[in-house]
Design a protein around this nucleic acid. Structure first.
Length: 939
RNA sequence: GGGCCCGUAGCUCAGUUGGUUAGAGCGCACGGCUGAUAACCGUGAGGUCGAUGGUUCGAGUCCAUCCGGGCCCA
């Protein structure tokens, strides 16, 4: 609409682009932050502030980041930025977990078997180091691209010398305290490659095995069974070669066991499996042992516990019947042959019952003397011989073949065995570590609340911690072995020497130098006095390594300290890092390394399913960055309730992106109406229209709410509060109402300056509130703000937290309370008015609301509030040209009319003529303008 | 199979100690505006609260079972 008056108005002006173009513009802000060294600066401004340390849990330096790592890092970043803006000294040192089997495995795969054979352990370690460092760099740049701020120039790496020295320090302290011991545990073992295998190095594949049923004669059978014949417990196994290591039979405690009478013998097994076993063994006739009443004799597994049987291989040796949770009643006989040296479950139940774990198979897979009659036999060839041997002795009930999934070595593709070997353990109970840890848990704040249950049950139930690994890429168990007698040599002197060695040369030296080169003179075996020592070849579990970051990082770095205020990781870390950090810290220092632990759920797709390549629902953070921008990932991170699993999908990101645009446009409107606002233009509270004072109250309330939500770690509430404020409070009400004043009133009028004063307050507050989340956009806004509003501060991230509005409103607390109450009513009426306007619009009686005049038949409870305001004020708030107030009285029985309870609104065409400048309907003068516009135009 | 946890409109979230017709914003549909314009304003339609069965005068809100999903174990 061509309108000459347009130039006489104060229409919005700004260079701040409506379209964000985040993907291409964000890198410019990254450069800006680099240029001004924002990380150092953010520390400097809070040099004297209280300390807040969020200690970063190290992601594994392998591969690119995914949505989960992106979420976690952004989450941490917004907390650190918030605390920093609140005045806390909050250094953030990112870390990486660099050692471990996956990297070693990958390097070995890349190398191929030929080259692998040729290189030394030291060379392999060098390749692993290069591999890890490459991905540290990759991930660091990806994290930075997300806007994560921290000491990326000097992160902590578990392969650093100083870090490795910390491993020794913690190990030494726990060793001194008597928590670390040497024991045995079965592990996957490949006797061809003569090596231990990690779970990830196992490939499962179908294998045809022997399937045999064996009778273990009971030495002290229950009388009810024995009466019917010689009694045995019947077991089933697919690994006959493990029978020499048998020490027990495990039953299900609550299951019913019966005696099956076959050929004059009584075979005890689970009742539920009798039919299946009969089929497998081909019994032509059998019957259950019955009592006098003719009922089958049923005995619970737990009642049989403690009975003894004759070990099937070793003559004159007894085994014991125990019970365990792992016994299934779906296959076998419900009586499980138990050899703690040959299986994980067998081992665990063996530990529980204090059983020995004989291990008659050597590292080549050959039976030693422990194999009894089979000594010298290779396990690969043992099965048929053992089966025949059993048959000869009349204990083989049946033999067949079965196909099942079985573990294979990834290198030679051949079946592997479970074999107990010497390992290092941290004892949970010898020195009371478990109890101390449970005690320490109580002193930590766990968010959300269920988190404490989880850590508690894990610490309560976990077995001793096996901390040794038979690998190359890691930190060695820092002890020695006497070559002469095999005794472990480790004391203050050796630990100090090793710690120094690692601190100066790194753990690599362990593999290239002889102990005599770095141990002081005179170190000798405490048992035999031998002085020739061999360095332990096992390395330490990577969980132990990352767990000691409280020592290697928090203690070691000047800017940090232990305990940290906060650890923040996904819920899987209850078993992982939270626990390993807790146990090593309690073990070495008797206290938890953290004051608060925050846990978040996992990232899943829109249907709540985990992301996987096969489902095709994987969302890559790098793709999201290039499509939407890092700020949209950041906004998504903040918007989700992390106490449960967090969904991400195209739709969710699309919605988040729309929310982003809404927030961005709100800022754009604010900026565009402050182009001519100078510090001298500020209007005092007393001189403001009531609407503006109310807007300040609303803003102060928002700041308050948002601050509390940040403090309570409720970031999705921050998001909802800010988003809602932009849409509801500002866009659809306050800003909409303000347009007339901002555009049409005289530029320098008090009414317009008052509005701008409020807009400035909103802008400078809001930009700070969103800065921890929308780090890039907030910075962009900051740089577009009028000079004076920036107060000479270079970056929004150095600008501190908004406090002045809250103080101003607090000075007028009473009035503020009244305004809050009154505006509840005003806004109710406004809703009714807009609804009535919409009806009129649908009837084509009006177009824009300024064409209307509304008559409000106020309800009784609203009347007083409306009466207290003048009609023009109300008309402005409702964006109509005029308001008339009426109160409808209705007659009552006693003849005294009372006000009607309901509210009615009539919409009429506005009186007067449309002012061509401000589009309100008014009395117009000779120039055709309304009084206000006329005087503005004339100046 | 075990431990911990989750399941309210298409999406993100609210729903106090169980109590009137379950809320908000966004999206969507329709309409308005064209002086926030790849914007802005308004109105409206969408849930019976994963399912079933209990406790209760009354349950999204307590109990049980089941279904679906997640993490960690086995």
């Amino acid at each position: 609409m061509g309108n000459d008056y347009k130039q006489t108005m104060n229409l919005p002006q700004t260079e701040f682009p409506m379209r964000a173009n985040l993907a291409s513009r964000e890198p410019e802000w990254l450069k800006f932050w680099d240029d001004i060294d924002i990380y150092r600066r953010s520390l400097e401004v809070n040099e004297n502030g209280p300390t807040f340390i969020l200690h970063d849990g190290p992601p594994y330096a392998n591969g690119h980041i995914h949505m989960g790592t992106a979420f976690n890092k952004v989450f941490k970043d917004l907390i650190v930025k918030y605390k920093s803006m609140r005045g806390y000294w909050s250094p953030y040192v990112p870390g990486w977990d660099c050692h471990g089997q996956p990297i070693e495995h990958q390097v070995e795969k890349n190398l191929g078997p030929e080259k692998m054979k040729e290189i030394s352990q030291a060379e392999l370690r060098t390749l692993c180091r290069e591999y890890a460092m490459k991905f540290v760099d990759v991930q660091a740049s990806e994290f930075k691209r997300l806007g994560v701020r921290g000491d990326f120039a000097d992160p902590y790496l578990t392969l650093n010398r100083s870090y490795e020295a910390g491993d020794v320090k913690v190990f030494a302290e726990m060793y001194r305290r008597g928590m670390i011991y040497k024991g045995r545990k079965p592990i996957h073992w490949c006797y061809r490659c003569k090596t231990a295998l990690a779970e990830a190095e196992i490939e499962y594949g179908d294998e045809t095995s022997d399937s045999i049923y064996v009778k273990f004669w009971l030495l002290d059978p229950p009388a009810s069974f024995a009466a019917a014949g010689k009694a045995a417990v019947l077991i089933w196994t697919t690994t006959p070669w493990t029978l020499p290591a048998n020490v027990a039979v495990t039953l299900a405690a609550d299951a019913d066991y019966v005696g099956v009478a076959v050929g004059g013998e009584v075979l005890v097994m689970a009742e539920a499996l009798v039919q299946a076993v009969a089929q497998a063994t081909g019994w032509e006739s059998f019957e259950l042992v019955r009592d006098a009443a003719g009922e089958p004799v049923r005995v619970k597994g737990r009642e049989l516990q403690g009975l003894h049987y004759a070990q099937p291989v070793h003559e004159g040796v007894g085994g014991v019947i125990i019970t365990g949770d792992h016994v299934e009643l779906t296959t076998g006989t419900g009586a499980v042959h138990t050899a703690p040296g040959h299986g994980e479950e067998d081992y665990l139940v063996g530990v529980k019952f204090g059983l020995p774990s004989p291990m008659p198979v050597d590292d080549r897979g050959v039976f030693d003397e422990g194999g009894g009659p089979f000594a010298g036999l290779h396990v690969e060839k043992a099965n048929p011989i053992i089966i025949e041997w059993l048959a000869e002795r009349g204990v083989l009930a049946a033999a067949g073949k079965t196909t099942h999934s079985y573990p294979h070595c990834w290198r030679c593709k051949k079946p592997v065995i479970f074999r107990a070997t010497e390992q290092w353990f941290i004892s949970m109970d010898k020195t009371g570590l478990r109890d101390a840890a449970l005690q320490a848990i109580k002193g930590v704040k766990w968010v959300p609340g269920w988190s404490v249950n989880r850590i508690n049950s894990m610490v309560t139930d976990r077995p001793d911690w096996c901390i040794s690994r038979q690998r190359a890429w890691g930190v060695p168990i820092p002890v020695f072995e006497c070559v002469k007698c095999g005794e472990t040599v480790a004391d203050d002197t050796t630990f100090a020497a090793v710690e120094k060695l690692f601190a100066t040369e790194g753990a690599d030296a362990w593999f290239t130098r002889k102990p005599s080169e770095y141990l002081p003179e005179g170190v000798a075996c405490p048992r035999c006095g031998g002085t020739e020592l061999r360095a332990e070849s096992d390395i330490v579990d990577v969980w132990f390594e990352s767990g000691v970051s409280h020592t290697s990082v928090l203690d070691a770095r000047e800017e940090l300290r232990r305990p940290a205020e906060l650890y923040l990781e996904g819920s899987d870390q209850h078993r992982g890092w939270f626990q390993s950090s807790l146990l090593t810290s309690v073990g070495a220092y008797d206290e938890a390394p953290f004051k608060t632990v925050l846990t978040h759920g996992f990232i899943v797709d829109g249907d709540g399913r985990k992301m996987s390549k096969s489902l095709g629902n994987v969302v890559s953070p790098l793709d999201v960055v290039s499509k939407y921008g890092a700020d949209v990932i950041r906004l998504w991170t903040a918007s989700a309730d992390y106490s449960q699993d967090v969904s991400v999908s195209d739709e969710i990101l699309e919605r988040t992106s729309e929310a982003y645009r809404r927030i961005r446009n709100t800022f754009r409107f604010l900026l565009s109406n402050l182009y001519d606002f100078e510090p001298g233009d500020v209007v005092a509270w007393e001189d403001m229209p009531e609407l503006d004072r109310h807007a300040l109250v609303t803003l102060a309330d928002l700041v308050d709410r948002v601050t509390r939500s940040y403090d309570d770690w409720k970031f999705h509430q921050v998001y909802h509060a800010i988003y809602g404020y932009c849409g509801t409070e500002l866009s659809s009400f306050y800003l909409d109402v303000l347009k007339d004043r901002l555009y049409a009133d005289e530029a320098d009028s008090v009414s317009r300056r008052s509005a701008q004063t409020v807009l400035a307050a909103v802008l400078t507050s809001l930009v700070r509130l969103v800065a921890p989340i929308l780090s890039f956009t907030a910075e962009e806004i900051w740089q577009f703000m009028p000079e004076a509003l920036r107060e000479g501060i270079e970056s929004v991230h150095l600008a501190g937290w908004p406090t002045s509005v809250g103080e101003l409103v607090a000075e007028h607390a009473e009035e503020a309370a009244a305004l809050r109450a009154d505006y509840v009513v005003v806004l109710e009426v406004r809703d009714a008015v807009t609804k009535a306007l919409e009806d009129a619009r649908n009837e084509k009686r009006i177009g824009k609301s300024q064409e209307a005049k509304v008559v409000i038949w106020a309800a009784a409870d609203q009347s007083a509030v409306l009466q207290a305001r003048d009609a023009r004020e109300l008309a402005d708030m409702f964006i109509v040209s005029d308001v008339a107030l009426r109160q409808k009285l209705v007659p009552t029985e006693d003849g005294v009319p009372v006000p009607e309870k309901a509210l009615f609104v009539d919409v009429l065409p506005a009186d007067g003529t449309k002012c061509p400048r401000c589009w309100n309907f008014r009395e117009v003068g000779a120039d055709g303008l309304c009084g206000r516009c006329s005087s503005v135009v004339q100046g």
